[in-house]
């Protein structure tokens, strides 16, 4: 089942030992169940012994429960957080090259301004821009650029952190 079939998606943030082969171990647990990984972002953490994987899987939380437990059993997996989209802040980076003859370049720059995107490079009939934002905002930007002709697009897959507590503790509480 994928998100497109009407099923949900699950976002896992997995802290692993920064060693060779760990990504294959993690990916293997999804593969053997036929679960497709929709996006995956990997980078070392502030502590260089560890990496953090942000994995988006097109599967509901219920069938994911067993995978998460199996994932937790991997010797190289240190901890796992399951992130609920409504309780987390998500970001994704897109770089995109769009057809932009000089006569329509202005229209594209309008979109760049509206979305607070960044122009990275300009060619005689193309323009390369980047946008960082929530995955849905990145989707919107990509949709709006598509009619102009996307030549190349690269998205990082999302990374996420849990939302912070808003209400300060009551100083008068016992």
């Amino acid at each position: 089942m994928s998100a497109a079939d009407g099923g949900g998606t699950t976002t896992l943030v997995v802290r692993v030992e920064n060693k060779a082969g760990v990504l294959a171990r993690v990916a293997g647990l999804f593969a053997r169940r036929g679960f497709n990984i929709e996006s995956l972002a990997v980078a070392p953490t502030d502590d260089e012994r560890f990496s953090r994987l942000t994995i988006v899987v097109g599967v509901d939380a219920a069938p994911m429960e067993q995978v998460v437990k199996q994932l937790d059993k991997l010797v190289n997996v240190v901890d796992i957080r399951e992130l609920n989209p409504s309780a987390s802040v998500e970001r994704e980076l897109m770089m995109v090259t769009v057809r932009a003859n000089p006569d329509i370049r202005g229209q594209i720059l309008d979109l760049v301004r509206i979305f607070q995107a960044t122009v990275l490079n300009v060619g005689y009939d193309e323009i390369m821009v980047s946008l960082t934002g929530s995955p849905s905002r990145v989707d919107d930007f990509e949709d709006l650029l598509r009619p102009y002709g996307i030549v190349d697009v690269q998205r990082t897959g999302k990374v996420a952190l849990p939302k912070l507590v808003k209400a300060a503790p009551d100083p008068l509480a016992p």
């Binding site: 060779a20 082969g21 053997r32 991997l74 010797v75």
Partner: peptide, 13 residues
């Protein structure tokens, strides 16, 4: 190590 990944508790190269 690739072949035995899913049939071992852990493996090392």
């Amino acid at each position: 190590t690739g072949i035995t990944m899913s049939v071992t508790k852990h493996n090392y190269l």
